[in-house]
């Protein structure tokens, strides 16, 4: 199987390199519907590392194709955002299937390491600014060029989330309250930008020099850009460093400084707070989705069983923010 994969990779990359020999083909991660591999190409004395991401038919009708992900990354790369360079894309009918190859970016993705290792002490001071700037560059992508993504207004997102929550018939008064509250909020004139959808530690590559790359574009869509700023402020994504509102490493003023260094969009703290509340609720619903997948026997694991008891963490963050002026 690995041999076949090697051959298919070499065939795809013939257009890019004179002599293609794939070595050190290594499976990294994957789930039921997609895989990530790492490999090396040697041409002469030059060795370069690459990543293959491929999917076996979508897990959900809303999931975007890997080729669409690649196209988004290409557009984001053009805006100067830190994102791995796309080398090649394969069609779903090709021998490799729906897939793309990108340059491997060296660095760390594990949140606790980035937040605690001395190695990143200096990086952390500037990371909120860097993230703000990167997010702004993502939002600058001209949406006319983006194909295959759905337009989702704030109302669409809230309704979709509400439907998902209701499907489990597991009534949660705090969630009901938050849904009602969100539906009363004025999200202003609807803005439509490219949104990453899951920008946080875990989905960014960091090294001793700073933010190197933004990865994992599966949840990308077109919608209100402030949700990317709210999401990284959700308490769960601070991985225990709660005082640092942005991702466990920074403060909102620095996130916004970074953002406004690139974008003229005027964004208020209040708007970020509203999307942080939405994001907290969204994460809570995701916990429900994961734990019920385990409970119906679709995807058993201790992780998914345990995650059901993290719903209450999102509830306490919501009551803190909604009633007690919490951050």
């Amino acid at each position: 199987m690995k041999e076949e994969l090697k051959k298919n990779l070499e065939n795809l990359l013939k257009k890019n390199f004179n002599t293609v020999k794939v070595t050190c083909l290594e499976y990294l991660t994957g789930g039921a519907s997609n895989e990530t591999w790492k490999f090396q190409i040697s041409s002469g004395s030059n060795k370069e590392d690459f990543i293959l991401r491929r999917s076996f038919g979508s897990s959900s009708p809303l999931a975007i194709l890997k080729s669409e992900e690649a196209e988004i990354q290409r557009l984001v790369y053009k805006e100067g955002a830190p994102v791995p360079e796309i080398i090649a894309v394969a069609d779903k009918d090709s021998p490799l299937g729906d897939a793309y190859i990108m340059k491997y970016v060296e660095g760390e993705t594990i949140a606790r390491k980035i937040l605690r290792d001395e190695k990143y002490n200096l990086v952390r001071k500037n990371l909120a600014f860097e993230c703000g700037a990167a997010i702004a560059k993502i939002h600058k992508v001209p949406i006319k060029k983006v194909k295959g993504l759905q337009n989702k207004s704030a109302k669409d997102l809230i309704d979709q989330l509400h439907d998902a929550y209701k499907s489990f018939q597991h009534p949660l008064p705090v969630f009901e309250y938050t849904f009602k509250w969100l539906k009363e909020q004025d999200f202003g004139s609807q803005r439509y930008n490219l949104v990453h959808g899951d920008f946080r530690l875990g989905n960014i590559i960091v090294d001793e020099h700073g933010l190197r790359a933004v990865i994992d574009w599966e949840l990308a869509h077109i919608g209100n850009p402030i949700q990317d700023l709210g999401w990284i402020c959700v308490n769960s994504w601070r991985f225990g460093q709660s005082e640092n509102i942005v991702g466990g490493f920074g403060q909102i003023k620095d996130l916004l400084k970074g953002y406004s260094s690139i974008s003229k969009n005027d964004i208020t703290n209040e708007q970020i707070k509203t999307w942080q509340i939405f994001g907290t609720l969204r994460w809570g619903v995701i916990c429900l989705i994961q734990t019920f997948a385990h409970l119906i026997g679709e995807n058993n694991s201790v992780e998914r069983a345990a995650i059901g008891r993290r719903v209450s963490e999102t509830e306490i963050d919501l009551v803190d923010m909604l009633f007690l002026g919490g951050n």
């Binding site: 993290r310 209450s312 963490e313 306490i316 007690l324 919490g326």
Partner: peptide, 27 residues
Amino acid sequence: KLKEVLIEITKKKLSVDNPNYSTYKKL
């Protein structure tokens, strides 16, 4: 009263689910 009720019940849940959670300890 609703707000107080929601706060109280949520705190009780956390005392079992995760008493070490930052926001719970804060509250």
